[in-house]
Write a protein that binds this DNA or RNA. Sequence first.
DNA 1: AGGTAATAGTTGATTTTGTAACTAACAACC
DNA 2: GGTTGTTAGTTACAAAATCAACTATTACCT
Lengths: 143, 143
Amino acid sequence: MSEKDDFDLQYFLPYMLNQAAEESSIAFQRHYKNRYGMLRTEWRVLFHLGRYGEMTAKEIGERARIHKTKVSRAVQKLADRRFLTRKKDENDRRSERLELTQAGLAAYRDLRDVAQEYDAKLVSGFDAEDVATLRRLLARLAG
Amino acid sequence: MSEKDDFDLQYFLPYMLNQAAEESSIAFQRHYKNRYGMLRTEWRVLFHLGRYGEMTAKEIGERARIHKTKVSRAVQKLADRRFLTRKKDENDRRSERLELTQAGLAAYRDLRDVAQEYDAKLVSGFDAEDVATLRRLLARLAG
DNA sequence: AGGTAATAGTTGATTTTGTAACTAACAACC
DNA sequence: GGTTGTTAGTTACAAAATCAACTATTACCT
């Protein structure tokens, strides 16, 4: 057909990464979706606040590379569900300090534990050294 | 805060995969978006037909794990742009044999070459053995 | 053959995302 | 101290993804 047809989508890195990401997210997604009615961005926001404590929407967006409108909507939903509280930063009243409520923290801990087990299960069939390589390259690819 | 706070999102595999996938897709996305006004699904459909020849929508969906409605709409757009033709399978008139036109094939070849270079560039900073490990584990994670 | 179930693909309604424009608060500069 | 430029976050509108229901055709089953 053409000269370079040894190129296969199955080995194209962005494609592989997408397929692996999707496949490996499905089962975990069910947890935050079914148990808490959350979307991925909401879970990520929840996670950041649970893990790192009080933060602003901007800080979360930067760390997780989520666009500010997405963060804004996720924060809104989490606030509606009383998973977090917002209070104006007195030094800069444009931004808000976000903090998990007890309910939010409980959800975080629950999901974090699930995530931890899930992660272990994902790599359980692999050689430990290979997994280390995998994570190292993924971290670099993520920039 | 809680007992298992050594767990970090940065090392949660589904998260890492998503971040790496997104980051590594951006630059390539620009090509099929700017040059051909395509969406990711369209590029994938185009790719499958270019690489593997005549196929049905169903086959593409199965191989690439894309939902049939997404495939259907992608095929529709590619047909509108005269990148592919559809003809009823005479053995089973529910399905259609899809085939790239000359224009579609040209676009495929162009993008395939870009993809190939892009892939090489992505891994250029890594050790070849590590890259082999990466692809091997990704293939298994993708299921 | 006739009826029921399954399949390929499409369409429509709803949800989610992306983009751009907006408000409110701060900063900097003259 | 007022004008101009930034920044945090929200809102409105357009694009795209998801999910359910639909059509047309084929398969199965008795």
